[in-house]
């Protein structure tokens, strides 16, 4: 296999074609590339996985030992086994699930409310110069304002309800998605716009067949950053006017010095972040099959 792969690698285009024509091994060219890459990684894959697993375990063990030894203050850093106990208690009482449910609902709603307009405006700004000129100053002026600084205003406007939380998250996501989407379109080689124009693409074709797919790689970067922003903002948004949610749990735990619950909330946030990241990269692989990896 190795010999064949290198042949494919070194082959000029013509070589590849004649190979495909004579052997009928059309798909193999592409496959061979991929196999070669994968095998290179998988050689060290096993030991890499062990290493990746080892480091958190070592830290947990050290932590567990350090508390009784007095090296770590157990009031601020309850030992892992105690956190696990609290975790389990919260699972049994159902509190954990309702917290996750409430926060997840706010995050997803806010994320969509921010990402969808961000995407549409970002594409328009990337595609059309007048739109860019019109909106860029506003975006540039409002983007640097920390969304946390806007929260008091949002609370004044919308009170302490769900709207306030959803809007806070939406704002954070909006800018991330918008700026990256616009950059994605602007980074597109100008030739693709020339082709679209020359081949009579309608405005709709420009959006859906050229700008959107072409900008997808950067759009996903924007979505990932937006997701990070949403997780950050949910904690702040649930600081006030909430009775449930992961963010709320952290502040509530602080008020009564229940650090174990606080750590459970940390774990949940981290898990959510991990799940979102994985979900996004799975979707990304599905919708961007054309990216050579």
């Amino acid at each position: 296999m190795a010999e064949r792969n290198s042949a494919v690698r070194d082959a000029t285009g013509d070589n590849l074609i004649s190979r495909a024509r004579t052997e009928g091994a059309t798909d193999e060219g592409g496959l061979a590339f991929r196999k070669q890459k994968r095998s290179r990684w998988s050689m060290g894959g096993h030991s890499n996985a062990v290493l990746g697993f080892l480091s958190p375990v070592v830290i947990l063990v050290l932590w567990e030992i350090a508390v009784p030894l007095g090296l770590l203050d157990g009031r601020f850093f309850p030992p892992p086994h105690a956190i696990a106990g609290t975790f389990w208690k919260m699972v049994k009482s159902g509190q954990l699930f309702s917290d996750v449910y409430v926060s997840l609902y706010r995050i997803i709603l806010g994320f969509l409310a921010g990402a969808i307009p961000g995407l549409i405006i970002g594409l328009s700004m990337g595609l059309f110069k007048p739109v860019r000129w019109l909106l860029r100053p506003i975006i540039s002026a409002t983007y640097p304002i920390p969304k946390l600084a806007l929260m008091p205003l949002i609370i004044l406007m919308f009170g302490f309800g769900e709207t306030q939380k959803v809007i806070t998250i939406a704002l954070g996501t909006f800018f991330m998605v918008l700026i990256n989407t616009m950059a994605g379109v602007l980074n597109l080689d100008k030739i693709y716009l020339d082709v679209a124009k020359n081949y009579g693409a309608s405005r709709r074709d420009f959006y859906l067949r050229v700008a959107l797919p072409g900008a997808l790689p950067l759009i996903f970067t924007g979505l990932e950053l937006g997701m990070g922003m949403a997780l950050l903002l949910i904690v702040a948004a649930e600081m006030t006017g909430a009775v449930e949610g992961i963010g709320y749990r952290i502040w509530a735990a602080q008020a009564v010095f229940k650090t174990k619950e606080m750590f459970v909330a940390f774990i949940l946030i981290s898990l959510l972040g991990y799940i979102f990241a994985e979900a996004l990269s799975t979707i990304q692989r599905k919708v961007i099959p054309w990216k050579s990896q």
């Binding site: 020359n198 067949r209 797919p213 997808l216 961007i288 054309w290």
Partner: peptide, 17 residues
């Protein structure tokens, strides 16, 4: 029929199609 179609010098087929 469309008036004209151009074949460009540089790589111009859409990578995402």
């Amino acid at each position: 029929k469309p008036l004209n179609s151009m074949v460009f010098q540089e790589q111009s087929i859409f990578p995402w199609m």
